[in-house]
């Protein structure tokens, strides 16, 4: 079962919730930090990153000796990353999304591909036995999606076999999403089973909650809400959740000791062990919703 922790607004507590949820789920849980522009879950879970892999996109390389300048590649490129000018084929690497359409559709097979490295994947176990992995995008890269896509595909057993897929399907996977409501968030959510939307009862929290809830609806993935810093702000988040049929699954009050502990790199379940049980209950609820959806 794959659970994505997302929020829209940054700083609402995605990583706080995701890390504690993983610790409550216990040994063997897979944790993916999909916020590849600024991954920080490792600060809390302290994994030993033993494995490393460079990832990126496959850029087209046109062999001008074979190319007939038919212009098909430029035509099929949705991102205008290939231009056909007279008898020249121009490739614009920074516009390319690595979809491979040009290579696939070139009738002359004049296009080959080369890996353009955009970042790395790192993985390893945490002291609590969590199977941790994160993507780290290189500074200056504009696109996070290819790294997130590779991170999701990265098998801890190394091989892309049916047996491994079966093992992975049995495993709990928790994905810590990037902030925002754009492509990287959508890519993180894609093919997941449940979206845990963390918000805070403020106008900013609500505004961005609506955006991610809209994406959840669009993707057809069941979602529930965690209200963090409960007690501040107003009741608008509450009212919206009731109206939109979004269940509020957990509330975490605004407490100074939580903020202080998190600022020191501690997790919520470490500073407040009574929350371990609440997170376990949260997991049970989520399992219930997922089974309901599948039925």
């Amino acid at each position: 079962m794959r659970i994505v922790v997302a929020s829209g607004k940054g700083g609402t507590g995605k990583t706080t919730i995701a890390t504690s949820l993983a610790l409550a789920a216990g040994e063997g849980v897979r944790f993916l930090d999909c916020d590849v522009e600024a991954p920080n879950a490792a600060l809390f879970l302290a994994p030993q990153l033993t494995e490393r892999k460079e990832v990126g996109i496959l850029l087209p390389v046109v062999d001008e000796n074979i190319c007939t300048h038919c212009g098909r590649c430029a035509e099929v490129c949705e991102f205008h990353a290939i231009a056909m000018i007279g008898k020249k084929t121009l490739v614009f690497p920074e516009l390319c999304h690595g979809c491979g359409s040009c290579t696939l559709l070139c009738l002359e097979k004049a296009i080959s591909e080369r890996l353009e490295v955009m970042g790395v994947l790192e993985s390893g176990p945490t002291p609590a036995g969590i199977d941790f992995a994160q993507g780290v995008m290189n500074v200056g890269e504009p696109m996070a999606v290819p790294i997130i896509r590779e991170l999701k595909k990265w098998q801890r057993f190394g091989l892309d076999t049916a047996e491994n897929h079966r093992l992975l399907d049995q495993q709990f996977e928790i994905r810590d999403a990037p902030p925002g409501a754009s492509c990287p968030v959508v890519e993180t959510m894609r093919d997941s089973d449940f979206l845990l939307l963390v918000t805070e009862p403020t106008p900013f929290g609500l505004h961005d909650l609506k955006q991610v809830a809209e994406i959840a609806r669009e993707l057809g993935i069941p979602a529930g809400v965690v209200v963090n810093r409960d007690g501040i702000g107003d009741n608008a988040v509450e009212a919206y959740c009731a109206e939109a049929g979004l269940p509020i699954l957990l509330r975490i009050p605004m407490e100074r000791r939580f903020a202080e502990a998190i600022a020191q790199g501690q997790t919520l379940v470490e500073v407040a062990p009574e929350y371990r049980e609440k997170f376990l209950l949260l997991l049970t609820k989520i399992q219930g919703y997922v089974q309901e959806t599948m039925a």
Binding site: F79, H80, A83, I85, F92, L95
Partner: peptide, 29 residues
């Protein structure tokens, strides 16, 4: 276009047979 507007516009004027363009600014692509 969601991206690559400069590339697409340049190909467009090239297809129109333009020999020169007059505009206020040109991006790298």
């Amino acid at each position: 276009a969601s991206g690559g507007a400069g590339v697409q516009a340049a190909q467009f004027v090239a297809k129109l047979g333009a020999q020169a363009v007059i505009s206020g600014a040109y991006g790298p692509n």
